[in-house]
Design a protein around this nucleic acid. Structure first.
Lengths: 345, 345
DNA sequence: TTTTGTGATGTTAAGCTTAACATCACGCGA
DNA sequence: TCGCGTGATGTTAAGCTTAACATCACAAAA
């Protein structure tokens, strides 16, 4: 613990040292930082000079301890590296920062036990609010969050049983809309490519989408679509090959719906590689949350989900409760958009 | 501050309450949590039962205050929503979590003053280490970090003047290698598409890449490449159009190098839309940090930068210093790979 | 002149945990 | 039997800040 640094880490400067340097009491320094209006101009200037001179950085641990509020908001997401949630996190981060809050981030890897462990650890920081993903949690996680007595937002999925608030969209409707669109393009045989449901945390979301898709077929008096499973977690290459095989071995198909953008783009790419003309020979659609549909050529027709907006809104809801702006729980359906691009006829 | 919750937020359970419930002193409870081996089996069981019964969650603010270490690592990145850095953050997060550390995240939006403000605020949490992006910072930021006397890692860019440690790759070499590859594919006229240098924080990185590219042309006894500017921050559509116009109006070109993957993919897509055959009529290459090169068809030849690894390594370096595993500053060149795909001849 | 209000600043204690030291009981060797 | 080491547990204070209350000077009102 010693050496390595030139400066000896004898505990950083604190309020008292600043106070001594400025010839005032610690309380006055505290006031300069928190309620500058309550301090006489001259004194304030002097204190500010001392702060700057000594390079004082307030200790927020002590602050949190005394005030019982930390200025920290916790966000738990399954993962951030595949861009599904990175937009959302950016949205959260932007809103929090503007309001002077800090973001404590945790990744659950779609693992409910890990989520519970993380929740417990993060609550130790006494966050002023918690944002988490999905509606599937262990009972203990739920209990921890309720006991913490801070605003909680579950985002992405909506449900009737939110711990506190919900911000998201209707996965059933998303599935329904894309299927309805595909069916509306004239008499056509449509297939459905979706991951097998391994992860519990996926299941909820994906199952709702599937249900929406099947419902649209039923509403159109069509038999249930031919279905092809792809492995989960999804790999773009692998799922592309599987989807392309599926298309090749079912020559009656005019189009496929992929349950995610990843699978959709993978299918598009592999079909093109094999020489299929898209959309002339086969239409491909996705349900999108990765924002990659617009990168490929032709663009992938997809359900666009406003991930960033979900994040922004979630953060706003938390902050709103901290302001007492919201008398009751919020349940906010952000919606989604069907975006038609070149990959469908 | 009242109402809204059924449970009255009378300040959560603390050590003392657990101690009373278990009929021991607060210190014993603390030991159960931190040095379970030092407590008799029976006592430990009893205390653990009380903890669970009362739903006690240790207050890490008090812990931090007393121990002078927080278990928090700060990471500052320019942005996370465009997937350039989301891999990196995931890497950091994974390593930290495995080691029981928490991640406090901040987004600077390529704004050095915002970075300074964020640094000051985050240092108030008394983090055990700081990871930040790039080597361009205000003097005050540098001073704050040095005074904080914790391990600091600057990642992505390497330099001779790191505040403390550096983990990244050589942007000059990346530019050099991709240009050298393009020139090696036979006698060809190659163009260069790069953003105008608005953001200082970009400048450093992009300027080095450009320098590498020009150096490769010089080394091959070629005149400097024709250059086309695209706006910065980069927009995939817009830069694609500009790049395609550039190609169309310079018929002597056999290929283009794009200074980023975003521009490369945009160019690829727009050229395809206009009916160009790739790579038969024109080769396209990028310098990649967005991991989208593999999504498109044909795949984009690019310099792959291991963003996740940069994150993992950065976190490891911080933790290593906290362990005293590293006697001196680390300067780690992670490298990159030239990945040849279908977009170049 | 006395009273009273007001703004500026100071004092005390609490918020929760842990390092450091103190205590205590028990067993074992001399 | 005595002394002492050892393991288990307790006591005290400190870490840094701020809420709540106290004090003080000074000016305006009576």
């Amino acid at each position: 613990m010693t050496t390595r640094r030139i400066t000896i880490p004898k505990g950083s400067t604190n309020l008292t040292e600043v106070a001594e340097h400025a010839g005032v009491s610690a309380m006055t320094v505290s006031r300069v930082l928190n309620k500058p209006g309550k301090v006489a101009e001259a004194t304030r200037k002097r204190v500010e000079a001392s702060i700057s001179k000594l390079g004082y950085v307030p200790n927020l641990a002590a602050n949190t301890l005394r005030r019982r509020k930390s200025g920290v908001i916790v966000a738990l997401v399954p993962t951030i590296d595949n861009s599904i949630f990175s937009d959302t996190i950016q949205g959260i981060s932007d809103v929090l920062e503007r309001a002077g809050y800090q973001l404590l981030l945790g990744c659950t890897s779609y693992d409910l036990d890990k989520e519970e462990k993380l929740t417990r650890a993060q609550l130790g920081r006494r966050p002023d609010g918690v944002i988490l993903t999905g509606t599937l949690h262990t009972d203990e996680t739920r209990k921890l969050l309720i006991d913490a007595a801070v605003p909680v937002v579950e985002m992405w999925d909506l449900s009737d049983q939110h711990i506190d608030n919900g911000v998201g969209f209707d996965n059933f409707q998303a599935g329904f809309d894309i299927a309805q669109y595909m069916l509306s393009r004239g008499p056509a045989k449509i297939g459905y490519v979706a991951p097998t449901l391994e992860h519990e945390a996926h299941e909820n979301r994906a199952a709702k989408r599937s249900a929406g898709i099947y419902a649209a077929f039923e509403a159109a008096n069509q038999p249930a679509p031919l279905r092809q499973n792809v492995p989960d977690p999804m790999n773009i290459e692998e799922s592309g090959v599987i989807a392309a095989d599926f298309v090749a071995s079912n020559s009656e198909l005019h189009g496929i719906i992929c349950s995610s953008e990843i699978v959709g783009v993978g299918a598009l790419k592999e079909l093109q590689r094999r020489g299929w003309k898209i959309p002339e020979q086969i239409s491909v659609a996705g349900i999108g949350d990765a924002n990659i549909a617009q990168l490929v050529h032709p663009g992938l027709t997809t359900i666009h989900i406003p991930g960033r907006k979900i994040g922004e809104r979630s953060a706003e809801v938390v902050l709103g409760h901290l302001n007492n702006s919201y008398p009751t729980r919020i349940q906010d359906d952000i919606g989604f958009q069907l975006v038609v691009r070149g990959s469908t006829r």
